[in-house]
Design a protein around this nucleic acid. Structure first.
Lengths: 251, 251
DNA sequence: CGCGCTTTTTTTGTATACAGAACCCCTCTA
DNA sequence: TAGAGGGGTTCTGTATACAAAAAAAGCGCG
């Protein structure tokens, strides 16, 4: 119940969506249990109409599941589901990269990406990477991936990449924070950045197959991070969507 | 205007969604123009609330586009958009096939698919294929593709395949009817069926790469059908979503 | 004491009312 | 004549009321 007075300009539907998403991701709503609209109404501080709208959108987003008899419940995911979602995202990003390579890109298009890369380089240069640096990395990484999708210059592809990245744990930076406490942390970031560099090089040289396969492999880094984090037990708290994953929160 | 008395059991939201989708696909609503809720209300015969719900769902489906200032408009697609949507679908189906192959399937899983294949074989056996046979093919083809996605046994993958197939022109059978009038009609169906057979064989033999690439190529048959139909000028009337495609309806 | 049925209560789906914003058209001015 | 401003109209976003259906609680019966 902290009332945000800053949200006054945005629509009630968006406010409800934001509030509910946050509630789900922070574990305020347990997976599997029905979401009461009334409860959602008082949580979001708006009427039922925008809440209802928000619920539909969150279902499409993948966070909620429709109950046959009516209403919605919080979806829960197995570890396999999470890994597959990452694979889906990697596949879509691979497609975007391949199309970009095959169709060609101008230096103007890749310029912001190279700048992005340079900034990441600076972040991961030190032997020890601070927590704040990890946060900064998350933002830059997200930006790089967004720019990459746009490089395909294909609205249908961009759209599908976005949808595949919508689930928090499937997003490019889903498990970056989880790895921040890991000993392999810097190692993984260095490899990831190498992938970034290679995919850009491949695209510039119109090497479609190379661009595609490297993006697929790149996504699998996230899968590895997940497994590492699960094994290490602990850093999972840093990924908000952890509450949605079956084996670790409930078991 | 024709009141359907059969729809009494289903929810108003679904009825509105069905009515509006049909209206869009049959060209009752022009691409680019704003959809008036009031107009939609009288078309669907329900109140604004379910109409509103339906509009949101149709937006997620890809048929509508949100207008920044509010409301929705019918989306329009370039020929390139259509081809890219098909490529997206093929990529997702390729992923599904690869995962099925890699993870292995039982003969019980593939049994209904083989039956499906046998039925298609009968349909395309005659030298000349009737219009009705094409219709039957569409249904069987859709079934085969649905079964294939399920073979991955991965909810995230199935979900994404479904979403990629949601757009009528991106669906596996999107341009099948358009080709029915083409001289190459039977030829294409024979090749498609060969693809079906190969992907199943590849999956059974756990040949992931083969299964994936054949599904990609399979989807490209739809792209070829589109180009053929465009060139032939005429059979496009048989694909409902043709009204959404820019270059052929408005130009 | 447990199970099933009935009744009550809650919850969802739908309709509608209202307010504010966007859009359109008309008019006025340069 | 073209462009800018203003008033009217229409439209969307939101809130709320109502009805039907589902869930829960209470009751009776075995």
């Amino acid at each position: 119940m902290p009332e945000r007075e800053t949200d006054r300009s945005i629509s009630q539907t968006v406010r409800a969506q934001l509030t509910l998403r946050d509630l789900i991701l922070t574990g305020g709503l347990r997976p599997g249990e029905r979401i009461s609209e009334l409860q959602a109404v008082e949580a979001a501080g708006v009427s039922r109409t925008p809440v209802r709208m928000a619920l539909v959108r969150l279902e499409e987003e993948g966070l909620l599941e429709a109950i046959p008899s009516g209403g919605f419940m919080v979806k829960s995911f197995s570890e396999r589901d999470v890994l597959d979602s990452i694979e889906v995202r990697g596949t879509m990003e691979g497609l975007a990269a391949r199309l970009a390579a095959e169709r060609g890109v101008s230096v103007r298009d890749t310029e912001p990406m190279r700048e992005c890369l340079a900034q990441i380089d600076e972040l991961i240069a030190p032997a020890e990477i601070s927590f704040d640096a990890f946060s900064a990395y998350v933002a830059l990484n997200a930006r790089f991936h967004a720019l990459l999708a746009e490089l395909s210059r294909s609205p249908p592809v961009i759209r599908q990449v976005d949808r595949a990245s919508a689930l928090p744990f499937a997003s490019p930076s889903g498990f970056v924070m989880a790895q921040s406490a890991l000993p392999e942390a810097r190692h993984i970031l260095v490899v990831a950045q190498e992938h970034h560099r290679i995919v850009l090089d491949a695209i510039e040289n119109r090497e479609g197959a190379r661009a595609e396969s490297i993006m697929r492999e790149h996504a699998r880094l996230a899968a590895r991070n997940l497994r590492l984090a699960v094994k290490a037990r602990g850093p999972m708290d840093l990924v908000p969507a952890a509450v949605l994953i079956k084996t670790m929160s409930s078991n």
